[in-house]
Design a protein around this nucleic acid. Structure first.
Lengths: 228, 228
DNA sequence: TCAAAAGTGTTAAGTTTACACCCATGA
DNA sequence: TCATGGGTGTAAACTTAACACTTTTGA
């Protein structure tokens, strides 16, 4: 067994960090929660929300914890994007970061956290310069999201429990970066029984008002045919 | 600066390993290169080909090095699958593994390495029980490969420089796990100028002989429309 | 009364699938 | 001469894309 210990000890050890690409959707815009570093070096530089993995924590659990610490939210959609391990990607020490794509309903986010964390929501198309490889992580997370949004019901994690079809369509447009035909989009939504029309109407978006819809996950699991 | 050091030191450090899912293709079968552990604990258990990341090495470079050590090959297709970080996934120490999907032309592999590494090529459908989460890594690597094979010219990395259309089709079938219509497949190949017919004929696969084709990467970059 | 967003079907174009026979060769 | 894999085209089914007007209501 000592031989075993020696075997492991002969190899280096690195810090392992989590970086969260936290997506939100508001006013037809896809936004990211980013943070200003409040310590040297690179104080003031914008970066993703992150934290270190603990000794007794699975990677995925660490991602959920870090995400919870930064947003105050639990039961949030969290998926791994990948590992980033350039030698000098962190100025202070060798750090391997595992990036996670996080989708939240921005209405549930407590804006006061922005004071505490020196963070804010920035439109994904107008991000400032960012720390080392964080732009790469964001690009990869966005690609992941673009790939998933049309094949799995992940978009609903970015919307409130009740949403209009215009909101849903605008969300898809913001993620895919292209316009979608309204009638074709609604035709496809209509074919999916798990996107349920309620009898409630949202009047904030127009004078006429629009029906509110709901994602029914039980119904989705019964018949998971998703294509948008 | 000391404050900075202290900041990093207050967080734990882990071993970071590379695990290679090495794919090969021979006799119409998709195969994986797997290895029998030659040290305790779990001596004799089958595992992926792996190694530890060094202090002065990017993750991707480590993957290429490990892959080179195990196959003797350079300039090989290597793509990250993801990071695997369950607390107890390695019995000896906390190890975070980054899995890499590796595609090689099995003809270039020196079979004598199998003696040295206690490794062998096993059909992907008849793998033995494997070390901890290695089956998960394999499943994820295969999904990645399935996703890519129809949209990018990655399959050619698994074939010799000259190949018949039947070989190419059988490769796709093995990766996707389903039969493909011969005429439809060849129609699509015919539309892609970068899959070039040579005037050479392979007689090993049939009495009649089949034309050999070649992937032209320059031509592909000129007009990268891939859809198989 | 008018501006602004909601809602609603049809047709053409393009893509995908299904399908069967002849050919060339070596044994 | 025959068994084996190589090579070839067409038509139907399905999917996707393009397109414009009416409705409701608050200001």
């Amino acid at each position: 067994m000592d031989k075993l210990k020696h075997f492991y000890n002969s190899h280096p050890r690195f810090h392992v960090a989590i970086d969260c690409i936290v997506f939100g959707f508001r006013n037809g815009e896809l936004k990211l929660l980013i943070q200003q570093r409040n310590f040297e070096p690179f104080q003031g530089v914008w970066s993703l929300m992150g934290g270190f993995v603990r000794e007794d924590e699975d990677l995925d659990d660490a991602a959920r914890r870090v995400c919870n610490e930064l947003t105050g939210l639990k039961d949030v959609y969290v998926r791994q994007v990948g590992a980033y391990g350039k030698v000098d990607r962190d100025p202070g020490a060798r750090v391997v970061s595992v990036a996670y794509c996080v989708l939240i309903d921005i209405d549930r986010y407590n804006e006061q956290l922005n004071m505490i964390n020196s963070s804010y929501w920035e439109n994904i198309n107008t991000l400032p310069e960012m720390f080392f490889d964080h732009k790469d992580m964001i690009a990869d997370a966005l690609k992941l999201l673009q790939r998933k949004i049309s094949r799995e019901p992940v978009g609903f994690n970015l919307l409130p429990p009740l949403f209009t079809l215009t909101q849903l369509q605008t969300l898809h447009e913001a993620i895919l970066g292209e316009r979608i035909d309204k009638r074709n989009f609604r035709k496809r939504v209509g074919e999916m029984a798990f996107i349920e029309k309620t009898d409630q109407i949202d009047k904030t978006g127009s004078r006429k008002g629009a029906y509110l819809y709901r994602f029914n996950n039980k119904e989705y699991r019964r018949n998971p045919d998703f294509k948008l």
